[in-house]
């Protein structure tokens, strides 16, 4: 079976797209969401998922804050750092992590190394010496 979060995501997109809560539409949406193939081994801890989803909610105002910082003071220097991936991440969670880092304007993930490192590109106010 597909994971319940996966199912919720599909149903959300379906209902937003159709904007129709009649019984027939609900039946169609649920059956399509169940029939679409999903990855089998999505056994990530629910706690991790909720944690990341919470971080996304925090990330939106933070992204706007960073945008204003970028606008008010020029950031001219660039550099690249490596960051450790937290242990025991499933692919879905890693995708969400990369999404979170790239969503904020000061940081972009350049590359994900298989051995558990993200390569993160930063803009900064001045060169770090």
């Amino acid at each position: 079976m597909i994971g319940h979060l996966n199912l919720i995501l599909r149903l959300t997109i379906w209902f937003l797209l159709t904007a129709d809560l009649s019984p027939a539409n609900i039946v169609i949406g649920v059956s399509v969401a169940l029939l679409l193939p999903g990855r089998q081994k999505a056994a990530a801890a629910l706690k991790d998922w909720l944690h990341v989803l919470g971080e996304i909610l925090v990330a939106i105002p933070q992204a706007y804050k960073e945008a204003f910082e970028l606008m008010l003071r020029p950031h001219r220097a660039e550099d690249v750092t490596l960051e450790r991936v937290k242990p025991r991440r499933t692919p879905g969670l890693i995708f969400l992590d990369i999404f979170l880092i790239t969503f904020t304007p000061k940081t972009i993930v350049l590359k994900y190394h298989e051995r558990g490192w993200y390569e993160v590109h930063w803009v900064r106010r001045r060169k770090k010496t």
């Binding site: 970028l70 660039e78 969503f103 304007p105 000061k106 972009i108 350049l110 590109h121 803009v123």
Partner: peptide, 8 residues
């Protein structure tokens, strides 16, 4: 990459 930051 710098332009990508401002585009985001």
């Amino acid at each position: 990459l710098f332009k990508l930051h401002s585009l985001s």
